[in-house]
Simulated scan of single mutants.
Amino acid sequence: MKHTRFILAGLIATAIVIGTVIWIRSTPSHPPASSADSQAATTSAGTVVISPAQMALSGIAVQALPVTRFQPQTSAYASVLDPGPLLQLRGQLRSAQLQTDAARAQAAASEREYQRLTVLNGQDHTVSDKVTETARATRDADRAHLEAAQASLLAARDTARSRWGDVLTGWALATRSPQLDALNSGQQALLSVALPQGGATGSPLPTIHISLPGSVGEITAHLLSPSPLADPVTQSPTYFYQAPRGGLRTGMRLDALLPTGQSVDGVVIPNSAVIWYANRPWVYVQSTDTQFVRREIAVDTPAPGGWFVAQWRGGERVVVKGAALLFSQEFQPKPQPGAPSSGGDDDD
């Protein structure tokens, strides 16, 4: 029995030592000041108190958010298209066009030859009827070849328009196309943007902004033309846009930000500042040097690198790094008054 008590006492002592080490590592390595400076605690629901020293040790960072004028935006889906099929189509259309041109030239030559021989045959039979008939047969065959080439070219154009629309098909048909050359060289990227059905944007915007994953920057894209195809996921109408290649890669599925409504004043809350609790978004706002208040925000307006929140006072300091640490501290179990001591039994 005594041996068992020794074991229990040893376990309790070990737990106390481990807890002490953890506490020492989380507090400054200088003599403690007051209890308010040396210990973090929740003073009320949604409020956390933590000393500046512990903030520094924990890597908690705050940032004063300035008021900015923001253009409300709505999101749309954008896809980076592979320009390979369009470049191949360019070769096919050019080949069909050249075959048509050659057939037209051959048909014109055989027509002239047939007319010349017909005149000679009708004047003094310098040319025999057989030669004239052979020339007519050649002319008729060249006419048929021309019609076949024209039909092939027309079918290729119609197929191209059904996939790429008039503007991009015109690029492919042109003898020289700087736009396709820019796609082929990787200077520009081709995007398909699906606008929301019945959205506030109405007609396609001439300029939109593309948000890159993991980046706070944006890429500006310019409207080219409507696309004949609907988005396979949303079934929304799509439009072709062109943007600098930059970090865009073929196959990327991105967010396109479309301006809607009038500009409003507010602040941009960084993504790193937002925590989720009970399916609602929150941030910690520093109210004093040591006090942080958890505040709910709205995340219905995306902005570059975060969320735009209207009707927010400028200059308020928001935790942009370490919000999860404050959240865990807020909900850390607190010692209850009158709790029994953890000391061991007397050794009787």
Rank of each mutant, 00 (worst) to 15 (best):
S225K: 08
P226D: 08
P226K: 11
S227Y: 01
P228T: 00
T234H: 09
Q235N: 15
Q235T: 11
S236G: 05
S236A: 15
Y239A: 06
F240P: 03
Y241F: 13
Y241T: 07
Q242N: 09
P244S: 09
R245G: 09
R245K: 13
G246C: 00
G247M: 13
L248N: 02
L248H: 04
G251F: 04
G251N: 00
R253T: 04
R253Q: 14
R253N: 13
R253I: 00
L254Y: 00
A256K: 06
A256H: 04
L257F: 03
L257R: 08
P259N: 05
Q262V: 13
Q262R: 14
S263L: 04
V264I: 13
G266E: 07
G266W: 00
V267A: 10
V268T: 10
P270V: 08
P270N: 08
P270L: 10
N271I: 03
A273E: 07
A273M: 08
V274D: 12
V274E: 09
I275G: 07
W276C: 00
Y277Q: 12
A278Y: 11
A278E: 15
N279E: 15
N279K: 14
R280M: 09
R280F: 03
P281E: 01
P281M: 08
P281F: 09
V283H: 09
Y284N: 08
Q286F: 07
T288V: 01
T288N: 04
T288E: 12
T288I: 01
D289W: 06
T290V: 12
